[in-house]
């Protein structure tokens, strides 16, 4: 019974405490994914991002990214990992609606390359419960570029070439993990993050604030890992605020 209550609390806390997040990929379960805490694992995953960054006003960021991850479990509960992903990211809001604009005012960046590296550490409290810390840094290797079309002097033309540059973020989470029957592992916890980016326009747009940064710094995350066939396992993780980000990945443990 105690376990059920604890589990219910773990599920609920993140959804109650959460604020806007700027996650750039899952933190993963505290225990890590390498076999017995040591050795190599690889993963392939999908990330659906939805968060808010502040510029001259709040911008909604959405994106879908597929990624590959590899990690290595070291001694004393530590695990390091690296991730590379490709996908699109859309920033809504840098330009307000105007009569002379005929294309979407969203800044849409295709073929963005996301890189991330992180560290996990966990400590068992008892055989089915453990606490852990995760720290992760993310960076987009390339700029997102988009053109805004409009009508000027009765001609359709590109009015602005906009870019989102140097996007990075750093995230840290503290999670509690509980082992459930059938090999299922669930985890949740509070989460902090800070992210930045820079929006530019050519020609410059009056009033456009170049630097954008995280709207809120504190939130929460939660997820579960389900063993599949052989040494494969599915992990799904979500972050809920007034928007919802979600990621899943299939890991293979060597």
């Amino acid at each position: 019974m105690k376990k059920i209550i604890l589990w219910a609390l773990l599920i609920l806390i993140p959804f109650v405490a959460a604020e806007n997040l700027c996650a750039q990929g899952m933190l993963g379960r505290p225990q890590g994914y390498s076999r017995d805490g040591k050795g190599l694992y690889t993963a392939a995953g999908f990330l659906s991002i939805r968060h808010i960054l502040d510029g001259d006003r709040p911008y909604l960021i959405t994106g879908e990214i597929i990624y590959s991850e590899a990690g290595y479990g070291m001694s004393a509960g530590f695990e390091i990992y690296g991730r590379i992903g490709f996908g699109k990211k859309v920033i809504s809001g840098p330009l307000g609606p105007a009569d002379y604009l005929i294309s979407s005012t969203d800044l849409r960046g295709d073929d963005r390359i996301l890189t991330a590296a992180g560290l996990r550490w966990s400590h068992p409290i008892n055989p089915s419960l453990r606490v852990g810390l995760s720290l992760q840094g993310s960076y987009y290797l390339n700029d997102g570029t988009d053109e805004v079309l409009g009508v000027r002097k009765d001609f359709k033309r590109t009015l602005y070439e906009m870019k989102i540059k140097r996007e990075w973020s750093i995230e840290g989470g503290m999670g509690i993990q509980i082992d459930l029957p059938k090999g299922l592992k669930a985890y949740a916890g509070p989460y902090v993050n800070y992210g930045e980016g820079k929006i530019t326009s050519q020609p410059p747009i009056y009033g456009l604030k170049e630097k954008i940064k995280s709207h809120h710094l504190i939130g929460a995350y939660g997820g579960f890992t389900l063993p599949l066939v052989k040494r494969f396992a599915l992990t799904s993780e979500g972050w809920y605020t007034d928007t919802f980000s979600w990621s899943c990945m299939i890991t293979y443990t060597y």
Binding site: T42, A43, A44, I250, Y252, Y254
Partner: peptide, 18 residues
């Protein structure tokens, strides 16, 4: 399997005993 979970084929999980 090797391309996705073997880091582009650098590793060979498909050839593992399981």
């Amino acid at each position: 399997i090797n391309t996705i979970w073997g880091i582009g084929g650098i590793l060979d999980p498909a050839g593992n005993e399981d």
